[in-house]
C-alpha cells in the first residue's frame, strides 16, 4: 500500500504545520518529525513521516503526475 504524495511546509505553529499540496492545504502534526517552513515532507495518518530533499520530492510528484488512473489505484 500506501505510497505518499510529498508536500511542502508553509508554516509551523508549535507541533502543527500547514502543508501545501498544489492548491490544497492540510494541517498536520510535526510531533514525530520537527519541521521548518520550506521543507518537503511526506505525511501519513496526519503526521509528518519523513523529510525529503526538494529533488526527491519533485521526482515523486512527477511520478504521480505521470501515473494513469489504474496505476494510482494500484497501491492501497
Amino acid at each position: 500500500m500506501c505510497l505518499s504524495i510529498p508536500g511542502r511546509i508553509e508554516k509551523t505553529d508549535g507541533e502543527t504545520a500547514v502543508v501545501g499540496y498544489g492548491n490544497e492545504r492540510r494541517t498536520v502534526s510535526t510531533k514525530l518529525v520537527p519541521c521548518a517552513p520550506g521543507e518537503w515532507v511526506v505525511v501519513s495518518g496526519g503526521f509528518v513521516m519523513q523529510k525529503l530533499s526538494e529533488e526527491d520530492a519533485k521526482k515523486a510528484l512527477a511520478l504521480w503526475d505521470e501515473a494513469d488512473e489504474r496505476e494510482r489505484r494500484s497501491c492501497c
Binding site: 500500500m1 505510497l3 505518499s4 526527491d56 515523486a60 496505476e71 494510482r72 497501491c75
Partner: peptide, 24 residues
Amino acid sequence: LHNACIDRGEGMYARFSEGFRDLC
C-alpha cells in the same frame, strides 16, 4: 507478504525509488 508486494514493484511501486518505497 505486504512488503513482498512492494519489493516486487507492483503498480505504482515500480515507479518509485527503493528509499521511497521503504516508507510503506
